[in-house]
Nucleic acid binder design. Structure first.
Length: 330
DNA sequence: AATTCGGGGTT
DNA sequence: AACCCAGAATT
């Protein structure tokens, strides 16, 4: 029994004992539902993403429905989830699947990779869960579990590290009869047991053979290269109200909040305008946004904005900071 | 190889 | 305040 198989068998046993009951986990998985859930869960905790999965699936129950959706409708349902290009790419992918694959998810890792928004992780997840293909998933959980168990010190956010961990993941899954079970198992093990800060080593079924545990380096792994400090940005929003309507402007496809609606921006604090609340620091993972909301007249704003009622606005995709302002202050 | 995409939960 | 989350696209 080699080290890969010992590890894999323990992971599968853990999963059988501890698997969570999630809406997209079915006896016979539905590829569309697995795809949708995996896109939503990118860089997103299961607990945060699950309600979004439920309401987006209800609104768009099939690939065809998703392909035919109004972009603003999809983005409205996505509001608050973040990484909004996922939603836009999801719909591009749906159109691709309708056009090129007769509305059915392709059934191989290689073909799945050709779909917009599907990268190595998502392709491996769908291929293994739905079609039993033996490609290892590599997500944040897998980096942590593999680096600790096998004692890998290559930085996980380097391209060489990504290659090395993918190869290792593929070695681990190679001997299984249940690729779906193993791949979900290692993620579940990372999420529930081999956690970042307080791993449950005292009750770990594989602590005896874990390199990090035996060398006292559990909390040092995985290695991740530090990134620079977050940048700062100041934003002045111009809030123009007229007869229970408010001016909103749809953002372009570049930079943050692509395709979302927001109050038209002002270049600077306006000469004539009323500050509606103390400036808010909206923290993104890579920058801090210092946001001020100014009540101004229509001639202070420019560009192709339109006026919307509050209910109309709430049918559009908005950054959460704008959605909250519309909900509470208007 | 680096950077840029959100927002919320944990520590 | 720092870290992390069922990552991918772009430069």
């Amino acid at each position: 029994m080699d080290r890969f198989n010992t590890f894999r068998i323990s992971i599968e046993a853990f999963y059988r004992a501890h698997k969570r009951d999630l809406p997209w986990r079915k006896e016979v998985p539905v590829p569309y539902e697995v795809w949708l859930s995996e896109i939503i869960l990118q860089q997103t905790r299961v607990a945060q993403g699950t309600p979004y999965f439920e309401k987006i699936l209800a609104a768009f129950p099939s690939v065809e429905a998703l392909a035919g959706a109004e972009e603003d409708h999809l983005l409205a349902l996505w509001t608050g989830l973040g990484y909004y290009n996922r939603a836009r790419n999801l719909q591009k992918g749906a159109k691709q699947i309708v056009a090129d694959f007769d509305g059915q998810l392709p059934n191989s890792f290689a073909e799945l990779l050709t779909i917009k928004g599907i990268g190595p992780y998502t392709a491996a997840a769908i291929a293994s869960i739905c079609f039993k293909e033996k490609i290892g998933v590599v997500d944040g959980n897998v980096y942590r579990v593999l680096s600790r168990y096998f004692g890998i010190e290559t930085p996980i956010n380097s391209s060489s590290g990504q290659k090395e961990f993918q190869a290792l993941a593929n070695e681990c899954i190679a001997g299984t009869k249940h690729p779906d079970l193993y791949n979900q198992g290692i993620m579940e093990f990372g999420a529930l047991h081999c956690t970042p800060k307080k791993p449950h080593c005292m009750t770990c079924p594989i602590a005896d053979s874990c390199h990090a545990h035996n060398s006292g380096t559990v909390l040092e792994l995985p290695i991740k290269l530090k990134k620079g400090k977050r940048s700062k940005e100041t934003i002045h929003f111009g809030v123009v109200e007229r007869e229970n309507l408010v001016a909103l402007k749809k953002r372009g496809t570049d930079s943050i909040w692509a395709g979302l609606y927001e109050f038209p921006r002002l270049n600077d604090a306006p000469e004539q305008g009323q500050l509606m609340a103390e400036p808010i620091v909206h923290k993104l993972s890579h920058k801090d946004l210092y946001c001020s909301f100014w009540a101004v007249s229509e001639d202070e704003i420019s560009g192709d904005f339109n006026f919307y009622s509050k209910p109309e606005a709430q049918q559009l995709g908005m950054p959460i900071i704008i959605a909250d302002f519309v909900a509470k202050k208007l």
